Computed example of a mutant assay.
Amino acid sequence: MTVYVDDVRHQFGRMVMCHMWADSLEELLVMADAIGVQRKWLQVPPKASWVHFDIALSKKAQALKLGAVLTDKYGPLEHLARQKGDEAKLEQITQIRTQRAG
C-alpha cells in the first residue's frame, strides 16, 4: 500500500496545489489526517476522475516526509490504468515517459 503525490502545480487562489491519492481509501485518509488535510476535501467520482485530495505544496512536503511517493503528472493516469487492468494505457504511459526522458 502506498500514498502518492504528483509534481503538477495548479494555481488555486494564492495557493499552488497538487494531487494526493493512495492504493486504498484507508491509507489515503490516514495520510490526510497526519498532514492536517480535512476529510471534507476528499474528491470522489463522479465529480472527480478518481479518489484523491488536492493539496497545497506545503502539505505535499509533509506527505513526502511521511513516506509518500513522488510521481509525475502521469501518475494519476497510471493509477487508474492499474486499477482497471488497462495494459494498453500502461504501455502508452511508459512510452511517453521514455520519449520525454530521451
Rank of each mutant, 00 (worst) to 15 (best):
M1F: 10
T2V: 06
T2K: 11
V3D: 02
V3H: 02
Y4T: 01
Y4A: 03
D6Q: 04
D6T: 03
D7V: 02
V8Y: 04
V8T: 12
Q11C: 05
Q11A: 12
Q11K: 12
F12D: 13
F12R: 15
G13N: 07
R14P: 05
V16R: 02
M17D: 05
M17I: 06
M17P: 06
H19M: 05
H19S: 05
H19I: 02
M20N: 05
W21F: 14
A22N: 08
A22P: 07
D23G: 11
D23N: 12
E26G: 12
E26N: 12
V30N: 06
V30E: 09
V30I: 11
V30G: 04
V30C: 08
M31K: 07
A32I: 11
D33S: 15
I35T: 05
V37T: 15
Q38E: 13
R39F: 10
R39T: 14
K40D: 12
W41Y: 14
L42P: 04
Q43T: 06
V44F: 06
K47Q: 14
S49K: 15
V51C: 14
V51P: 13
H52W: 04
H52L: 04
F53T: 09
D54N: 15
D54T: 08
I55L: 09
A56P: 15
A56K: 14
A56T: 13
L57I: 05
K59V: 03
K59F: 04
K60I: 00
K60A: 02
A61G: 00
Q62C: 00
A63I: 01
L64V: 05
K65M: 00
L66N: 00
A68Q: 02
L70D: 01
T71N: 05
T71D: 03
T71E: 13
K73L: 14
K73F: 14
Y74G: 07
Y74C: 05
G75K: 06
P76W: 11
L77V: 10
L77N: 12
L77T: 09
E78D: 10
H79F: 15
L80I: 15
L80T: 12
A81L: 09
R82S: 12
R82D: 04
R82F: 07
R82Y: 09
Q83W: 07
G85H: 09
D86S: 15
E87L: 15
K89V: 15
E91Y: 03
E91R: 13
Q92L: 13
I93N: 14
T94I: 07
T94C: 13
A101T: 09
G102M: 12
G102V: 08
